[in-house]
Amino acid sequence: MKDSPEGRTEEELVERARHGDADAYGELVLRYQGIAARTAYVITGTSADAEEVAQDAFVKAYRALDRFRAGSPFRPWLLRIVANEAINRRKAAGRHAAVELSEAHDRPADDTALSPEEAAVASERRAIVRRALARLREDDRIVIAYRYFMDLSEAEMAEALGVARGTVKSRLSRALARLREVLDG
């Protein structure tokens, strides 16, 4: 639970937002807009959809603040709303769960330690993993993303996935096993 620049904790921001403080909610959005957009992207597979999903989710979360359990962490609660929103949008559009995940083009190369051949191999390996991820069911993809893309803790993952904490490990290992099946297959 990081402090805001003004020293407000997440809990204080949520409490203020619940009482209609738009600045406080804006600060929460600023804090979590990146992870919300990433979560949405992993499910929708398109940037445009993901951005809309994240926006919708933040608006819905604001409206649902009355139902937020005071004192519990905001981030996983929000991510659950984001993921639901993304899945609903995908279903409403009649699209399959499989998506295409792309690599950002504008990312500065940081493989300078690698030879051109090694860099090409690394790039190909990433592409293979991306394609395999894209073929997974979205609940497998999201559990992998929470763990490895977003570094959520087990407790946060449980909250975000809406499962008991004890089942997070098995969900993750099953998802990794299915990823391996796709990779090996």
């Binding site: 804006g26 995940l101 992998i144």
Partner: peptide, 26 residues
Amino acid sequence: LLRDVGDRLAYPDARHLATRVRARIA
């Protein structure tokens, strides 16, 4: 490898979300 893939995905630009969300809430 997964962490590397996650770092490089073409995520949407989320920089303006806060502004848009606030406008929409109103």
